[in-house]
Simulated assay, not measured.
Amino acid sequence: MHEMALCEGVIGIIEAEARRQSFSRVTTVWLEIGALSQVEPDAMRFCFDVVAAHSVAAEARLEIIRSPGVAWCMTCAKTVAVERRYDPCPCCGGCQLQITAGEEMRVKELEVA
């Protein structure tokens, strides 16, 4: 389950910001997860609670923001929405798509106390 390692990275980012900005408690974490990132939101929620237990985010609520997959179709020269990595272009059916968004995972915002 790679979500555990991802959560450890998220907590590392939060802990580094807590030291840098001198806050001692996080109440909410907004985490943006792209539709093409291969990250399972339910697994992230479970792992976050476990990994955050002894950190400044120990009692934080995790809010997940899903961002859509977007690709550039080289066949029809359009920007298109994609739900899965190897889906064909919804406009022309072509398979030459360059992913331009939706693979990311980032800490979008923190609410601190």
Rank of each mutant, 00 (worst) to 15 (best):
residue 26 V to K: 01
residue 27 T to E: 07
residue 28 T to K: 15
residue 29 V to W: 10
residue 29 V to T: 06
residue 30 W to T: 13
residue 30 W to F: 08
residue 31 L to Y: 10
residue 31 L to R: 01
residue 31 L to M: 11
residue 32 E to T: 14
residue 32 E to S: 14
residue 33 I to F: 12
residue 33 I to K: 06
residue 34 G to P: 06
residue 34 G to A: 05
residue 34 G to E: 01
residue 36 L to I: 02
residue 36 L to W: 03
residue 36 L to T: 01
residue 37 S to H: 03
residue 37 S to C: 01
residue 38 Q to V: 07
residue 38 Q to E: 15
residue 38 Q to W: 08
residue 39 V to W: 07
residue 40 E to M: 05
residue 40 E to W: 04
residue 41 P to E: 09
residue 41 P to F: 14
residue 42 D to I: 11
residue 42 D to E: 12
residue 42 D to N: 11
residue 42 D to Q: 14
residue 44 M to C: 12
residue 44 M to A: 09
residue 44 M to E: 04
residue 44 M to W: 06
residue 45 R to V: 11
residue 45 R to Q: 13
residue 45 R to Y: 04
residue 45 R to L: 05
residue 46 F to A: 11
residue 46 F to I: 14
residue 46 F to S: 08
residue 46 F to W: 14
residue 48 F to R: 00
residue 48 F to P: 07
residue 49 D to W: 00
residue 49 D to F: 05
residue 49 D to K: 14
residue 49 D to Y: 08
residue 49 D to I: 11
residue 50 V to R: 00
residue 50 V to F: 09
residue 51 V to R: 08
residue 51 V to P: 03
residue 51 V to S: 04
residue 52 A to N: 10
residue 52 A to W: 08
residue 52 A to G: 00
residue 53 A to L: 13
residue 53 A to I: 09
residue 54 H to E: 15
residue 54 H to T: 12
residue 54 H to F: 13
residue 54 H to R: 11
residue 54 H to S: 15
residue 55 S to D: 01
residue 56 V to S: 09
residue 57 A to Y: 04
residue 57 A to K: 01
residue 57 A to Q: 10
residue 58 A to G: 14
residue 58 A to I: 02
residue 58 A to W: 07
residue 59 E to Q: 15
residue 60 A to T: 09
residue 60 A to Q: 10
residue 61 R to E: 15
residue 61 R to H: 15
residue 61 R to P: 03
residue 62 L to M: 07
residue 62 L to T: 00
residue 63 E to L: 12
residue 64 I to R: 03
residue 64 I to W: 10
residue 64 I to G: 03
residue 65 I to V: 15
residue 65 I to H: 11
residue 65 I to Y: 03
residue 66 R to A: 15
residue 67 S to E: 13
residue 67 S to L: 15
residue 67 S to W: 08
residue 68 P to M: 05
residue 68 P to A: 10
residue 69 G to S: 02
residue 69 G to L: 06
residue 70 V to E: 14
residue 70 V to L: 07
residue 71 A to Y: 04
residue 72 W to M: 07
residue 72 W to Y: 12
residue 72 W to P: 04
residue 72 W to F: 12
residue 72 W to E: 13
residue 73 C to P: 12
residue 74 M to Q: 12
residue 74 M to L: 13
residue 75 T to A: 05
residue 75 T to G: 05
residue 75 T to Y: 00
residue 76 C to L: 01
residue 76 C to F: 05
residue 76 C to D: 11
residue 76 C to H: 09
residue 77 A to V: 00
residue 77 A to H: 01
residue 78 K to S: 12
residue 78 K to V: 00
residue 78 K to A: 12
residue 78 K to T: 02
residue 79 T to H: 15
residue 79 T to D: 13
residue 79 T to K: 10
residue 80 V to Y: 10
residue 80 V to L: 09
residue 80 V to S: 02
residue 80 V to H: 06
residue 81 A to N: 05
residue 81 A to Q: 10
residue 82 V to K: 08
residue 82 V to N: 06
residue 83 E to N: 09
residue 83 E to Q: 13
residue 83 E to V: 12
residue 84 R to S: 09
residue 84 R to I: 02
residue 84 R to G: 09
residue 84 R to F: 13
residue 84 R to P: 01
residue 85 R to G: 06
residue 85 R to M: 14
residue 87 D to Q: 12
residue 87 D to F: 06
residue 88 P to W: 06
residue 88 P to R: 11
residue 88 P to I: 00
residue 89 C to Q: 00
residue 90 P to H: 05
residue 90 P to I: 02
residue 91 C to T: 14
residue 91 C to V: 15
residue 91 C to D: 13
residue 92 C to K: 07
residue 92 C to T: 10
residue 93 G to Q: 07
residue 93 G to Y: 03
residue 94 G to Q: 08
